[in-house]
Design a protein around this nucleic acid. Structure first.
Lengths: 114, 114
DNA sequence: TGCGTATATAAGCAATTAATTATATGATGA
DNA sequence: TCATCATATAATTAATTGCTTATATACGCA
């Protein structure tokens, strides 16, 4: 089995980023589904700037990437990031957050927006 | 394979704790070797209170435990902690920090103190 | 072209964090 | 019992973080 090793500095940086419940949940969701900003605003019941700022931090270290689709900007996990295997192993130990997206669908919020 | 799942809250708390280079390195070292406070002071070239405070945080969430041996207090990983499997998987992806202890031995600092 | 929607960025502020300095506690050994 | 060593705790301070409010940008549509 290939053992990937990550430097301590980089690991600490990534863990610090993920050591925030909002960002950790975002990344867990994004690992399975692309999402746009307004969905996160709904899910976390917080302000749009707050969400944007969290996403920016994740983007700055390359964990997620953005892509414009018409009016919306979708975020997705950057699987080509050299540290993706590191976080993937971590995410696998977290409970699925699919129910959060399901709630949006039930509210109609997911469809309306994206 | 048994899949252990950890709640998001708890995971975020632990990741935040480990998202500090000093604490992450401490835990990585402790995963293989017990250490006393004065060794960490040497390794990290920082003040004793600073080291004590980091250890306290790790102790407060149960990741490490302390044990007095005569004059010294040794810290070790708490393998019975319910979140140990979570961090173990993470630690396995980090480079060994044995060289740091080796340096102490070469300096004689390890033996003198502990 | 002008308006509404989605998102990003900037500035300000309150809360949290990590380090320092000073002091307390507890064990050892003369 | 007193001095010393190892460690913990407390108080202070500077730096960092995350949120809010306000504003800017960029797209889609009438």
């Amino acid at each position: 089995m290939l053992k990937t090793v990550i430097e301590m500095d980089k690991a600490a940086t990534i863990l610090k980023l993920l050591g925030d419940k909002t960002r950790l949940t975002m990344v867990k969701i994004l690992d399975k589904h692309d999402c746009c900003v307004c969905e996160f605003v709904e899910i976390f019941k917080t302000s749009q700037p707050s969400i944007s700022q969290h996403l920016r931090k994740l983007r700055d270290v390359g964990l997620v990437k953005e892509e414009r689709r018409g009016q919306w900007i979708f975020y997705s996990i950057n699987k080509t990031n050299e540290y993706y295997p590191f976080i993937q192993q971590l995410l696998d130990q977290l409970p699925s957050q699919d129910h959060k997206l399901k709630e949006l669908e039930e509210q109609g919020t997911r469809i309306v927006c994206c």
